[in-house]
Amino acid sequence: MSAAKGAVTGHHAIIREWVQLYTNGMYAWAYHKTTDKALAEDLVQDTFLAALQSFDKFKQESQPKTWLFSILNNKISDHFRQQFRHPVVNEAEGGLSFFFDEEDEWRKERSPQAWNTTDTHILDNPDFRKILQHCMHLLPGNWLAAVKLKYLEEKEGKDICQDLQITPSNFWQIMHRAKLHLRNCLEINWFKK
């Protein structure tokens, strides 16, 4: 066996060991960031493939777990960037005209209403979280990417604009529209049911 082939076999053994040690934690992190089980699994798999392909670049100056999570975080950011650049428009409604009339006034049936709830821990309710996740996935891809970066990754607006290569006014317009659609979806699927 050549030395190069032996090194590759050694790399595979190390990566297999890392898969055993770190998969669960990496999956939990990816799922927390994306709220999509299949996507989280794909991102973890892509992370291990990238680690195998760039194993020679691992200088062992950090712990393997730190290196792998760094790769995973880059994969997550790349996913959000790609989602933003290639939006999938799956709105049931026709944009802002769904909420506003020709004079830019709220449509009576779409104006914000007070939500009738006394539940101060609504995000702890698994049924509500399912509805929220459903509503988020109805957003166009670029809106969803911006919302996740803002509220799940807790990034600052200026950092999101830099990551997604958009202007601040574009970012705030996206956030405004996304909130309108999320509110409408939650009203229909949770608060008025």
Rank of each mutant, 00 (worst) to 15 (best):
S2G: 10
S2A: 06
G6W: 15
A7E: 13
T9G: 02
T9E: 07
T9K: 08
G10N: 11
H12A: 12
A13T: 08
I14S: 13
I15G: 02
E17D: 14
E17A: 11
V19F: 11
V19I: 14
Y22I: 05
T23A: 05
G25Q: 10
M26H: 04
A28I: 04
W29Y: 10
W29F: 10
A30Q: 07
Y31Q: 02
Y31C: 00
H32Y: 08
K33L: 03
D36Y: 08
A38R: 13
E41F: 03
L43F: 03
L43N: 02
V44L: 06
T47C: 11
F48E: 03
F48L: 01
A50E: 13
A51H: 04
Q53R: 15
S62M: 12
Q63E: 15
K65P: 02
W67A: 04
L68C: 00
S70H: 15
I71T: 01
N74C: 05
K75Q: 09
I76D: 04
I76R: 01
S77L: 12
S77P: 15
H79R: 11
F84E: 05
H86W: 12
A92R: 15
A92N: 13
E93D: 13
E93N: 14
G94C: 10
G94Y: 14
S97I: 09
F100Q: 01
W106F: 08
W106L: 03
E109V: 06
R110S: 11
S111V: 07
Q113N: 14
Q113A: 13
A114K: 15
A114I: 13
N116K: 14
T118P: 08
T120N: 15
T120W: 14
L123T: 05
D124A: 09
N125A: 06
N125P: 04
D127N: 13
H134Q: 13
H134P: 03
H134E: 12
L138T: 14
P140T: 04
G141L: 06
N142C: 12
N142W: 10
W143K: 12
A145L: 02
A145I: 04
A145K: 03
K148C: 05
K148Y: 08
L149S: 00
K150L: 12
K150V: 06
Y151D: 08
L152C: 08
L152H: 11
E156V: 02
K158Q: 13
I160D: 03
D163V: 13
L164G: 02
I166D: 03
T167Q: 12
P168V: 04
S169D: 11
N170M: 03
N170P: 00
F171K: 02
F171N: 03
I174Q: 04
M175Y: 05
M175H: 03
K179T: 12
L180E: 00
L180N: 00
R183V: 07
R183G: 10
C185Q: 01
C185D: 01
C185P: 03
L186G: 01
E187P: 05
I188P: 05
N189G: 09
W190T: 00
F191W: 06
K193S: 04
K193F: 00
